[in-house]
Design a protein around this nucleic acid. Sequence first.
DNA 1: CCCGTTGTTGTACGATCGTCCAACAAGCTT
DNA 2: AAGCTTGTTGGACGATCGTACAACAACGGG
Lengths: 197, 197
Amino acid sequence: MKAPAFRRIEPDARRLALIEACARVLARAGAAGVSVRAIAVEAGVSPGLVSHYFPGIEALVAATYAHVEATVAETLDRAVEAAGPEPRARLDAFVTTTFAPTIADPQLLSTWIAFWSLVTARPAIAAQHDEQYAGSRARLEALLGACGMPESERRRAAIAVSALLDGLWLELCLSPGCFSAEEAGAIARRFLDTLIS
Amino acid sequence: MKAPAFRRIEPDARRLALIEACARVLARAGAAGVSVRAIAVEAGVSPGLVSHYFPGIEALVAATYAHVEATVAETLDRAVEAAGPEPRARLDAFVTTTFAPTIADPQLLSTWIAFWSLVTARPAIAAQHDEQYAGSRARLEALLGACGMPESERRRAAIAVSALLDGLWLELCLSPGCFSAEEAGAIARRFLDTLIS
DNA sequence: CCCGTTGTTGTACGATCGTCCAACAAGCTT
DNA sequence: AAGCTTGTTGGACGATCGTACAACAACGGG
């Protein structure tokens, strides 16, 4: 009559648990502190299990980035839906939520940095980045189109807005004291004013 | 009659040589491939010398970032000077040069990423980032002021332009095929049009 | 209840990491 | 030419890394 030494769970659930553990390690220790053992401890499993589910740390980091990015995108979508039917209000909600504490978080940035550090050297990861960036831009294009922007201008406008948001988000994470989330939101919304009018 | 086993050079020159070697290693192997030994081989010295000049890899990466950032800033300043006296032409030169091949270079990005990965965890490096970012923004504010922008608007405008340039530059390095340097320059210059008019 | 499947463990292995320091030698001074 | 300063070497050290693999045990089907 003793407690089981471990629990068996289905592969997909285990994969997700490892991904979430990796995200926590990245948030706590940064890109340099991520390792098979640290993730295993965080997930409460043995080190060997990490290698069993992922061919290497890089694959796990890539999967973690994909998962966190999807979570962020879901948060943004939810905020857009909550903003109601007015197109411009939806766009503003997208912008404001981008700088909300849960997203403009230095700990979240470390996941991006760990992923970015792999993009240049690994073609497969570069392809993943291209794909996720295209998806993010497509959502932005849809929001801009709903505001009446002609299709011929949407591509460039989405690239511009995406870059502005990324740049503000990045600096907000790296130097939180330099300017506030409200200021970042105001800058971005003002930029949208000039784009849409 | 045999060649000397090594050359003694003055500490400042050796420090610079190590910094340049670190930059080359970062460009070639990325943030994950940087190590004391790799840098020592690249600089043609023994591993012990790296530790002798820098308290650790992190300090060397920080010094390398400072050096590369200064080089980039100098390139931008030179381009601005070469653009002549017209304020708007100087601003355009700043923007265009930001996306020139020597600056919007994936290999250069790895230096930034290696540095960024240290910002969150190390307060001293966060302070260095704040300082260098403030300097970069001050240069931008001066260029905007010369174009007739009132001082009360310069801060926000510089933050906005800096973020847009950073975001475009980042994406240009990560996904070179998505849009061109010319397109990035056109987007940025168009943004400046709306700001200055 | 037992048995087979397979998710999981835990360790051993070689490689590589950053750090350290005593010994060496290059080059200036005398 | 000899001595001295000090930049430089190069290996030793313990820690940690990713990987691999044989043994184990949890859990469902019989």
